[in-house]
């Protein structure tokens, strides 16, 4: 398809490291706004910042999970950005956790109590822990050392981590709210594409 070919060609010129730069800049920007209590941070910056980082992490996980289906069905190739998307998602989860632990809960003892006692925190924490080995092995050396097959197997942890992340969000809101449901449904659907046979669009097929 002409459109995807043009897009793919254009995307090739964009370096993947730009994602890290934009991600870091955005994280710092939000922190700065929270510090100075600007905009949504006017009254209670801690919870708002906690949620802002968490939500970016979820969005990046969704985008990361879309890379493969987009390539297979639409022919759009974002593969070279996937590692940067995943690692940036991890850093936002880490930032989310740090805001929770340091600014919100404010003591290690209470952090532990929260993790053990509150299922939605347990689930979020589990997701975070699953992402750690993935972040650590997101480099070419690890792929070589582990071997492609093992590495790929390990990185399937992305699926439960993303589902648990969305569940964490759904579990913490009060009343009937639509956003966390949308995240959960989209993530489950994207994971399902890995296990359901759907006719593929071949990269090499003539258009």
């Amino acid at each position: 398809m002409a459109v995807t070919d043009t897009l793919n060609k254009g995307l090739r010129k964009i370096p993947a490291w730009l994602i890290y730069v934009v991600g870091a800049a955005y994280a710092v920007w939000e922190f700065w706004r929270a510090l100075n209590q600007i905009g949504p941070y006017l009254v209670e910056p801690i919870n708002v910042l906690e949620r802002a980082y968490g939500e970016v992490a979820l969005i990046l996980m969704v985008v990361g999970l879309m890379v493969t289906p987009l390539r297979q069905w639409v022919g759009l190739n974002l593969l070279k950005f996937r590692r940067a998307i995943g690692v940036t998602a991890f850093f936002f989860v880490l930032a989310h956790f740090l805001v929770f632990a340091i600014l919100d809960v404010q003591s290690l003892e209470r952090v532990w109590t929260e993790i053990v006692k509150r299922p939605y925190v347990t689930v979020g924490m589990l997701s975070f822990v699953m992402l750690i080995p993935l972040a650590v092995t997101s480099n070419n050396l690890s792929v070589r050392k582990l071997g492609a097959a093992t590495w790929r197997k390990l990185h399937k942890l992305t699926y439960p981590a993303a589902v648990l992340g969305a569940l964490h969000y759904l579990w913490l809101v009060k009343g009937f709210q639509i956003e966390p449901i949308i995240y959960l449904v989209v993530i489950i659907a994207l994971v399902a594409t890995r296990y359901v046979a759907i006719p593929r669009k071949r990269q090499t097929a003539p258009s």
């Binding site: 209590q37 209670e44 404010q106 209470r110 299922p119 579990w171």
Partner: peptide
């Protein structure tokens, strides 16, 4: 509360580093 502790609270107005 089943989903969060009620032992402490955060007084609104303390900014980003408000203590519980």
């Amino acid at each position: 509360h089943p989903r969060w502790s009620q032992a402490t609270e955060r007084r609104i107005g303390g900014g980003l580093f408000a203590a519980r």
